[in-house]
């Protein structure tokens, strides 16, 4: 069965996040970037932002990368938020819809961060149920992104990549493999990034994210912070090459959300990713499900 992720998946080339400071220039100059990605939460209340998204959508495929559904919260999904997402999906027709393996809401409070989950059978059941509800409401499959982590819960019993694999198996969702998040999580929790990559079922990886991170020294230990505020670090490009070897060429999105540079800088990062994708295509050999 081939999952329906939305109308026309993007090409296996590098896209960029559509950021507010770039909108004017992008709409004026129409750079040849193959697709754009946005946080749907920024457009749910309409306004001028939605108007410019619709203008961009006329010329570019747009994918939705949600941050507000809180799929890992123990309670019910926020139906009002899900309905707002559906309204926006129907209006914009994104080529992909993704969300996070995390939680943000508890007791009616939205905590504005992708908070960590214990990887247990209980959490698996909760997240799978929410993914199924979302997929039924939207009428399409979604992608789940691996989080960047700064802690591990003592009572987790399932390794994170196996947890993601099981979610994909139970719900038919796809995976958004954030290579920077794997790198950051592996560093912060003492994991092996290659072992992590090897544990992801290759056919389920539908999109890849790359981004920059920051180094933060606390207690004379270095913690990496996933701040999407700089160029992709060299070891993350290396890990990205490893990912492409395993998954083949996959649509790749360059994220840069803080200390946003000139549009040309972001486009140059996408070019670097395109070069690596081209090399992966040239190597060929890896058969992927269409």
């Amino acid at each position: 069965m081939s999952a329906n992720y939305g109308p026309g998946r993007p090409d296996a080339r590098a896209g960029i996040g559509l950021r507010a400071p770039h909108v004017g220039e992008l709409l004026a100059t129409r750079p040849a970037v193959p697709w754009l990605e946005v946080h749907p939460e920024n457009y749910m209340m309409g306004g001028a932002a939605l108007a410019s998204l619709e203008t961009a959508r006329r010329d570019y495929p747009v994918s939705f990368h949600g941050v507000g559904l809180s799929l890992g919260s123990a309670g019910d999904i926020d139906r009002r938020h899900l309905e707002r997402l559906k309204t926006l999906v129907d209006r914009i027709e994104p080529c992909l819809v993704s969300e996070h393996l995390s939680w943000s809401t508890s007791g009616g409070a939205y905590l504005n961060h992708l908070l960590p989950l214990p990887y247990t059978d209980e959490t698996l059941a909760v997240v799978a149920s929410h993914i199924q509800e979302v997929q039924e409401t939207l009428g399409q499959s979604i992608l789940i992104e691996n989080p960047s982590s700064y802690l591990r819960f003592r009572h987790s019993t399932i390794p994170e990549p196996e947890f993601l694999a099981e979610l994909a198996r139970r719900t038919g969702c796809g995976l958004l493999c954030d290579v920077n998040n794997i790198y950051v999580t592996a560093w912060n929790l003492g994991l092996d990034a290659i072992v992590y990559l090897d544990a992801l079922p290759t056919a389920t990886v539908i999109e890849i994210h790359v981004a920059g991170h920051a180094r933060n020294d606390a207690d004379s230990q270095t913690i990496l912070i996933d701040n999407h505020g700089s160029h992709v670090a060299p070891p993350v490009w290396t890990l990205y090459r490893e990912a492409l070897q395993r998954f083949g060429p996959v649509p790749t999105l360059v994220e840069w959300d803080t200390d946003i540079p000139e549009l040309s800088v972001l486009l140059a990062e996408a070019c670097t990713a395109d070069g690596l994708l081209e090399a992966a295509r040239a190597r060929g050999g890896h058969a992927r499900a269409a």
């Binding site: 908070l115 214990p118 230990q221």
Partner: peptide
């Protein structure tokens, strides 16, 4: 009590999340 240290004080690990929540909502 539920957070593994893994070589760093769990307090410092929790503080990373707290810092992000408070600073981003303050910016909002």
């Amino acid at each position: 009590a539920h957070i593994a240290g893994d070589g760093l004080d769990p307090r410092a690990r929790l503080a990373i999340y707290r810092h992000h929540v408070l600073t981003t909502l303050t910016a909002t």
